[in-house]
Amino acid sequence: MSELRNHTPDGPPAPIRAGREPRFPGGPVADPAGSHHERRIRSFQPRRSRVTAGQGDALQRLWPVWGLDIDGLRVLDLEEMFGGLPVVLEIGFGMGEATAQMAAADPGTGILAVDVHTPGQGNLLGLAERNGLSNIRVANGDAIILLREMLPPRSLDGLRVFFPDPWPKKRHHKRRLIQPEFLTLAAARLKPGAILHCATDWEPYAEQMLEVLSAHPDFENTQEHGGYAPRPAFRPLTRFEGQGLDKGHKVHDLLFRRPLGPA
């Protein structure tokens, strides 16, 4: 049986059987803000799947360097964290392949990538190390708490929400992330001129996104005549997106800007 190794302070590494979620000393913790903030309806569900040996190794070695738990107890200094680079927040990065590609293509922009999927966190950390991507930081936990409690006003140069959970059943629509309340919170953290970029392959969710974004006073459509935007060249075609396209799904991109305001 293959195994991961859990380092202990008083002896040799203790084996952890494959198929059970390992514990990573100094790594991401489960629900880091759960005991500090209110319980509410969430737009995500933590997924439990096997962490490979490589992902576990990346989590143990690299989390103290490039990772952070969203505990809601401090305000982040993004300028210090990214060495003065402009910073884009990415909510929900899956396994991180697209995030790593965007970071490699634009080393002058920092990416603060948020997810709750442990294998994906480990995978992205490993990709960052192998490709020398020092402009990525990986955050674990609830993006709402990150935005509300841990990011200063007007601190972000962009926000990306690619393929969020569509919550297709009508009774679950309230769980969708792109809602007026979320947009108001996001707008307060975005600099004037910053872009909010959403993408989805779920047609009803795309329609809702377009409706609430178009109606929100803190955003304006980058498309002169409204509607969806062509897929920007900088957004990589992900494996997940490719699977959707193979099934006949149509992907919609929405690019909305925080207005610059009066001069």
Rank of each mutant, 00 (worst) to 15 (best):
residue 84 G to F: 10
residue 72 G to K: 02
residue 79 E to A: 15
residue 59 L to A: 03
residue 65 V to K: 06
residue 104 A to M: 05
residue 137 R to T: 10
residue 116 V to P: 11
residue 73 L to R: 15
residue 104 A to L: 09
residue 92 G to F: 02
residue 100 A to S: 14
residue 128 A to P: 00
residue 75 V to K: 11
residue 125 L to E: 08
residue 104 A to G: 04
residue 49 S to M: 06
residue 126 G to P: 05
residue 72 G to V: 04
residue 72 G to C: 09
residue 134 S to L: 10
residue 101 Q to A: 15
residue 53 A to Q: 12
residue 127 L to F: 07
residue 94 G to I: 05
residue 138 V to I: 15
residue 54 G to D: 14
residue 74 R to Q: 15
residue 62 L to M: 13
residue 73 L to M: 15
residue 69 D to R: 12
residue 59 L to Y: 07
residue 136 I to H: 01
residue 87 V to P: 03
residue 133 L to Q: 07
residue 85 L to F: 06
residue 71 D to H: 12
residue 134 S to T: 14
residue 84 G to P: 09
residue 78 L to G: 08
residue 94 G to V: 12
residue 119 P to F: 08
residue 105 A to N: 09
residue 142 D to V: 05
residue 102 M to E: 03
residue 78 L to E: 09
residue 109 T to G: 06
residue 120 G to C: 09
residue 67 G to R: 05
residue 109 T to M: 07
residue 119 P to G: 02
residue 101 Q to P: 07
residue 86 P to R: 05
residue 96 G to T: 05
residue 52 T to K: 07
residue 52 T to R: 13
residue 126 G to I: 10
residue 99 T to R: 03
residue 130 R to M: 10
residue 74 R to G: 06
residue 76 L to W: 08
residue 83 G to R: 11
residue 89 L to Y: 10
residue 87 V to A: 02
residue 66 W to V: 09
residue 82 F to Y: 11
